[in-house]
Design a protein around this nucleic acid. Sequence first.
DNA 1: ATACTTACGACTAACTTACGAGTATTTAGT
DNA 2: ACTAAATACTCGTAAGTTAGTCGTAAGTAT
Lengths: 201, 201
Amino acid sequence: MQKPLSTKQQQFLDLIQRHALTYGQSPSYAEIMSALRFSSLGTVNWYVKTLIKNGHLNRTGGPNSKRALTLTEKHPASARLPLLGFIAAGTPIEALENAESVEVPAPLVHPDNFVLKIKGNSMIDDHIEDGDYIIVRKTQSAEPGQSIVALINGEATLKRYYPQNHKIELHPRNPDYPIIHINETDDFQINGIVLYSFREY
Amino acid sequence: MQKPLSTKQQQFLDLIQRHALTYGQSPSYAEIMSALRFSSLGTVNWYVKTLIKNGHLNRTGGPNSKRALTLTEKHPASARLPLLGFIAAGTPIEALENAESVEVPAPLVHPDNFVLKIKGNSMIDDHIEDGDYIIVRKTQSAEPGQSIVALINGEATLKRYYPQNHKIELHPRNPDYPIIHINETDDFQINGIVLYSFREY
DNA sequence: ATACTTACGACTAACTTACGAGTATTTAGT
DNA sequence: ACTAAATACTCGTAAGTTAGTCGTAAGTAT
């Protein structure tokens, strides 16, 4: 059932996975076309058809469903997640130009997840040190008590989230540090929730 | 029944959840409209209708009830995994009678995963200390280079796995410690691969 | 009265699918 | 080594489908 893949087909599959990981959804035919330097959508369609026929690719949702290509599941123990940039207290998140990636356990690989690297020792009140990595689930909302990455008036921080009636409290993990109170005049935005932190071996 | 979500639909859902968490009630159509920069209530209604139809959104209370949108599908950031017992170098894994469990990130929750607690300082060559937890994926095989939990002649260990032609090398992470060579007369069995280690806060 | 929800019709942009006709590249047979 | 045949890949275009958009007006609860 699983015919062997030609080199180009492998590239095709790789692109879909990379795109899904980076942008949170699978690419459209047109995006594949320009990424792979085809000059026709027909070519893209030919790949999709034959890869689905041979069991390497799936479509989630019926025919005509958009951006719905997924790789048929292989489950390696680990895979890569994009490293989006650096986070340091008191500044916006510093983005990385060229897409690096970091090896993480496969169960953490999800289109909405990404990795940030900690810069400086400013997060030490969260038990997170210079050079550590955090795995973040991209979302605009969080449950009370979760650790979040947030932007307050343009400054990045990493705190625990405790919404109250008309304000929001952000607690550091270390009780020696102050609790931050956000009110409605502040520009506050949740970027994601922290799933895990780890250190390079 | 649960159609996959488009990116915009995901944003829509996120907004509702965030608003509910921040202000204690779900947003009105008009609030959604301005938050999402639509210029018509019809658009909001279209989203609500289709999201409810596809089972992603609920309305608490009958039709025409105000500010009554709730997400059906919450994706909690964490859930529990069974704590199977203790692992200490040089002895079999010590099982726990009564099933405890440990809170871990949801993406790591999988029927084949379990947690072990490290006992003693004997694993320190893997940068893992007394009291740390490891999340293990139960499996009989591993990729070269992965960290595995294995039983050698009845003794548990935690090492990196490097299969060779006719023997297997197990490397500790700390180069000061010796490499272990397994040959065919040894009783060697892989119990699982280590997905992650963490420490209780 | 005020603050909301619901319904409708028409429209557009984004995207997938189908088709017909090719050109390269690999494989198999003599 | 030469040739036939299959396979892999490419092109352009047109038609079809779906997600998302708009504005307005009428209905419903407090």
